[in-house]
C-alpha cells in the first residue's frame, strides 16, 4: 500500500518534470540572468570601500512563490484526470520542490563562498554572501536559504489551495483574516508597550532562529495546505 502510494508520488514528481522548463529551466534562467545583471551593475557603479548589495538573489525565490501557485491551480486538476490521489499529488509536488530547493540552496552557499573568495567578484559586490548570514557558517546558510525557499513555495501553494477550494470569497476571507491578525498583533504590542522586548527577542534569534521559525511556519502551512487539498475538487 505505502509502496504503491510512494511510487505514485514519484510519478507525480516525474509528471511535474515532463516539461523541464517549469521546475528547472526557468529557475536556471532567472538565476543566471539576475547574477549576470548584478555583475553588470556592480561593474558600472565604482564604489571601492563599502560593499555593493544586490537583491538579485531573491528573484528566483519570488518565482518559487509563483511556482507554488501554478503547480496547484493547473497541475492539480490534471493530476485528478490522471487518477492520482490528493495525497500522492501533494507528496510528489512538495517533495520535488524540496529537492529543487536543496539544490538551489547548495548553489547559493557555493556562490556565496566564491563571492567571498573573489572579494565580491573583484568588485566588492554582495549578492549571496549577505554579511549577517555569511558569518554564521555553511550549515546555517544552507538551512536558511532552504527554509526561505520552502516557505515561499508552500505559501503560494497554500493560497492556491484555498482559492481552489473556497474560490474568490475564500481568498478574500483569508486575506482579511491575515490582515486583522497582523493589525491586532501590532495593536497589542503597541498597547502593552512591548516593542522593546520584541526588538530584543528578534535580534536574539539570529539566522538560525529565523530559519527555525520559518521551517516551523512552513510545516504548519504545509499541513494546512494538505488538509485543505484533501477536500478540494478539480
Amino acid at each position: 500500500m505505502s509502496w504503491a502510494v510512494d511510487n505514485r508520488a514519484v510519478k507525480v514528481a516525474r509528471m511535474q518534470l515532463i516539461n523541464k522548463w517549469t521546475f528547472l529551466g526557468i529557475p536556471a534562467i532567472i538565476l543566471t540572468g539576475s547574477f549576470l545583471l548584478s555583475l553588470a551593475v556592480f561593474a558600472v557603479i565604482p564604489v571601492p570601500d563599502a560593499p555593493k548589495y544586490s537583491g538579485a538573489g531573491q528573484a528566483v525565490m519570488w518565482y518559487f512563490f509563483a511556482l507554488g501557485i501554478q503547480s496547484l491551480t493547473l497541475t492539480f486538476p490534471f493530476s485528478q484526470g490522471m487518477s492520482v490521489s490528493r495525497r500522492s499529488f501533494f507528496l510528489g509536488t512538495v517533495g520535488l520542490f524540496a529537492v529543487v530547493a536543496l539544490v538551489v540552496s547548495g548553489l547559493y552557499v557555493l556562490l556565496g563562498m566564491a563571492e567571498v573568495a573573489t572579494k565580491g567578484w573583484g568588485m566588492n559586490g554582495r549578492m549571496f554572501a549577505l554579511q549577517w548570514i555569511a558569518d554564521s557558517g555553511v550549515g546555517v546558510q544552507f538551512l536558511f536559504y532552504f527554509a526561505l525557499m520552502m516557505l515561499l513555495f508552500i505559501l503560494g501553494f497554500w493560497f492556491a489551495t484555498v482559492y481552489k477550494r473556497w474560490g474568490a470569497t475564500g481568498m478574500l476571507v483569508l486575506w482579511l483574516a491575515v490582515g486583522v491578525l497582523l493589525v491586532g498583533l501590532v495593536a497589542l504590542v503597541t498597547w502593552q508597550d512591548w516593542w522593546a522586548p520584541v526588538g530584543t527577542w528578534l535580534a536574539a534569534q539570529g539566522p538560525l532562529g529565523i530559519t527555525g521559525w520559518s521551517l516551523l511556519f512552513t510545516a504548519l502551512l504545509g499541513g494546512g495546505a494538505y488538509l485543505t487539498l484533501r477536500r478540494a475538487t478539480p
Partner: peptide, 23 residues
C-alpha cells in the same frame, strides 16, 4: 476516495478537463 488501488484502475477525463498551461 484517496484509494490508489481503486484509482489506478480508472480513467476519467472530464469534458472540461484542465491541463497544465505549458503542456
Amino acid at each position: 476516495y484517496e484509494n490508489e488501488r481503486v484509482l489506478n484502475r480508472i480513467c476519467f477525463i472530464r469534458e472540461s478537463q484542465k491541463y497544465p498551461d505549458d503542456f
